[in-house]
Write a protein that binds this DNA or RNA. Structure first.
Lengths: 197, 197, 197, 197
DNA sequence: TATGAATGAGTCTTCATTCAT
DNA sequence: CATGAATGAAGACTCATTCAT
């Protein structure tokens, strides 16, 4: 008789939005943005085509939202964890975090790589991406500077390249190749004179 | 009529094909495969849409051809140069070659990254890609083994990741960021104990 | 519970219906039937989409109701006023009434013109429209006949055309053109040998 | 074997464009812009949906083109005829021309009325409409001024209203009502003291 | 060989309408 | 009586591909 309360509606909306975001992430990451139609998403999420537009203005906005959420989650997780630990060895922690995230959010990282390359899409998520990047640089620059590395900027680029490259290869590795993430993480530790955790 | 006419035709065909391949590379690499229509290519190459189909069965085949040609050129250049130089320090040469190629064929590398990620396209160029990869592994494995690195496979993965990562960042760097390719190449030399050339 | 509650409900229903009709008129008239969605109306009236369907079977029925109400109001106003005045110069009164209505119900007239032109919509309000037209013809035919105009039918068509044309131009005139309604009314009086009121 | 010449293509394009414009005019005028889909037009013109987009950027542009062509034709016809006649009684000629055009281009006039009312569409054809209007005013103002009418502007408005109204009623008259165009034209002549031609 | 008009399947998007609450 | 999430049919538009010339 009486309509749903405001809270009930809000709850439904949250759930549905989450569902669509998740489905979008999965499909975009595995097939690529242009190879996924709105119909595909609707079918996969078991909703009607029109419903997506109830939550996202367009397919592009959905994509943007997927990425923003991914980056937000990443930053949040990073912040939350660090607040707890607060060790002096921040770099070690950072590396660990990246490898963990790679393992747990492979799809997000796939998507992340896909998107950086599409100029038109990159524009959409540029701001979020930049804040993520800034974060990494801030965190690592201090490390290299303190240790007396002679060219910290160059050092960061190499460091970032190594992580990016590892992420890239892990994420796009042939499915039947068991990528040795742990071994590689330890190797990275060694390169930078860090102890295994 | 005369045989020469035949040859001329052949020559024209070769030129046309080359033109289309080059145009395709440029557009695919800068805008992305899905954002470039056959009409775009025809317009950019100043030919008719139909003509493209005279040389390539489909847009997909054109893409595949672009990549195959890129990889073929790369391998040829690598082989030709090496035959000329024949230094004992193969790794040093290899690194140098990669950085040179990055600088000279930025577009090809952009495209290369873009394609790895699109499963459906990746399938098309898998073979060429694998032979390129094999080549790299063969060249580097020997190096790491000889030097007594304890885990050559892991070492290769790190090495490859670093190069891939550098390539990736160079190729997708913001246009107004002057990526210090030379400095980074020297840094890589240093890491592996190689001399500057 | 008490009978009063019933009445209150009825009152609320009437108010709601009126609100929706009014909102519909405003939006249809300013933007055009096809450029206004049910959501737009609901938003403007500050009610839910579903509620509209509680009062009107469909968007089309709402439109039809808007027009019917407009025509009904027009006829009622005409009748009520005439009952009060009952001058012998009916035409003079009629003209005055039309110009007054134009000034006061610009939106209705806009809508009226818009709708006459849409065959599918015209069908819906044909009956109401016809009864309005008949009324005008009946009122004016007598006038022209009495005065001995040689071709009353033709005269009526010219007369109606003039009024329609004036209404049309007034209603669709550029917003920054101050349409001289009064002057034109007087001019019409003069043409038909009527005195200024 | 050899491709069509430039002229052949141009000819084809002209014909097709004309066909689509004509079909568009017919359908828009009879059913209204929003009630005609691109598919409808394609079906009526016996072409594919896509072809329309080969000639017109969008449905809106098609509409705009239809109107522009209509107005252009009208002005051209007016100019051509006048050059031939060059009578001293321009108004008489003008009226005659309007009535003739009404009879011959009923559809265009239907469309013309429909469009004036749709703000969003009106914007698209405003310029063409204004030049037509200006023409009418220029032609008639002189007439009323010379004859010593005391308020030429008001006179023009009445005159324009009458013609607009007649056009409106003729164009939207019930199909089974035989609208007496000729008689009305003569009546208009009489009102302005003009002789029958 | 070369052209570009023509096709139509497929895509994104809108919106009137329904219905569980 | 009132809500707004959900549906799906319909529409505008794109573009790889074909084909007559």
């Amino acid at each position: 008789m009486s309509p749903r309360t405001e809270e009930q509606f809000e709850e439904i909306r949250e759930e549905r939005k989450e569902l669509i975001l998740q489905t979008g992430l999965e499909l975009f990451a595995t097939k690529g943005y242009h190879n996924v139609s709105v119909s595909d998403i609707a079918r996969a999420a078991d909703i009607s085509k029109g419903l997506m537009y109830n939550y996202f203005e367009s397919k592009e906005v959905l994509l943007s939202s997927v990425v923003q959420k991914g980056i937000k989650d990443l930053l949040e997780a990073f912040d939350r964890d660090k607040d707890g630990v607060l060790t002096k060895d921040e770099l070690s922690y950072f590396i660990d975090f990246i490898f963990l995230s790679l393992k747990n959010n492979k799809q997000f990282w796939r998507l992340y790589f896909m998107l950086i390359m599409q100029p038109e899409i990159y524009e959409m998520v540029k701001n979020e991406y930049m804040s993520l990047k800034e974060r990494v640089i801030k965190t690592t620059y201090a490390f290299f500077e303190e240790r007396g590395y002679e060219d910290p900027e160059c050092e960061i680029l190499i460091f970032a390249a190594m992580l990016d490259g590892l992420a890239f290869q892990f994420v796009f590795a042939d499915d039947n190749f068991q990528y040795p993430l742990e071994k590689l993480r330890d190797k990275v530790y060694k390169i930078y004179g860090l102890k295994k955790q």
